[in-house]
Amino acid sequence: MRIILVRHAESLGNVDELAYCRIPDHALPLTARGEQQAVDIGPRIRALLGTGPIAVYVSPYLRTRQTLQLMEIDDLADRIVAEPRLREQDWGNLQDPVEQEVQKRQRHEFGHFFYRLAHGESGADVDDRVASYLAELELRMLRQSSHPTTVLVVSHGLAMRLLCRRLFSWSIELFESLSNPNHCEFRVLERDEQGVWSIDRPFTQWRQSPDGSTQKTSVR
Rank of each mutant, 00 (worst) to 15 (best):
L62E: 15
T67H: 05
I73P: 01
P60M: 10
Q69R: 10
R79E: 02
V81L: 02
Y61R: 11
R65I: 06
L68Y: 06
D75M: 07
Q69F: 12
V81D: 06
M71Y: 05
D90M: 11
L62P: 06
E83H: 02
R85M: 14
L62S: 15
I80H: 05
A77R: 01
Q89S: 11
Q66V: 09
L70Q: 04
E83Q: 08
R85K: 10
L68R: 08
D75V: 02
T67S: 15
R85W: 05
I80S: 01
E72D: 15
T67K: 08
T64F: 07
A77W: 01
L70P: 04
R63M: 09
P84Q: 08
Q66Y: 12
R85T: 08
Q69N: 07
Y61P: 07
P84F: 02
V81Q: 11
R65T: 10
A82I: 03
Y61A: 13
W91E: 11
E83A: 03
R85G: 01
P84K: 08
P84A: 07
W91A: 12
Q89G: 09
P84C: 09
T67C: 01
V81G: 07
R85Y: 02
L62F: 14
P84E: 14
R65D: 10
R63G: 15
Q89T: 13
Q69C: 11
Q69A: 12
Q89C: 11
R87A: 14
Y61F: 15
P84G: 06
P84L: 12
D90Q: 13
L68V: 02
Q69T: 15
E72I: 05
D75K: 03
D90Y: 05
L76G: 03
A77D: 02
E88D: 10
E72R: 12
E88K: 10
P60I: 13
A77Y: 01
V81K: 05
Q89K: 13
L70I: 09
R79L: 04
L76S: 05
W91R: 14
D90G: 10
I73A: 04
E83Y: 02
V81E: 12
R63I: 14
Q89R: 15
R87P: 00
L86W: 14
D90I: 12
L76A: 00
L70T: 05
L62D: 13
Y61C: 14
T67D: 04
A77C: 07
P60G: 10
L62R: 15
E88F: 01
Q89Y: 03
L70C: 06
L76E: 01
Q69W: 10
Y61I: 05
L86N: 13
D74K: 00
L62T: 12
R79P: 00
T64L: 13
T67M: 07
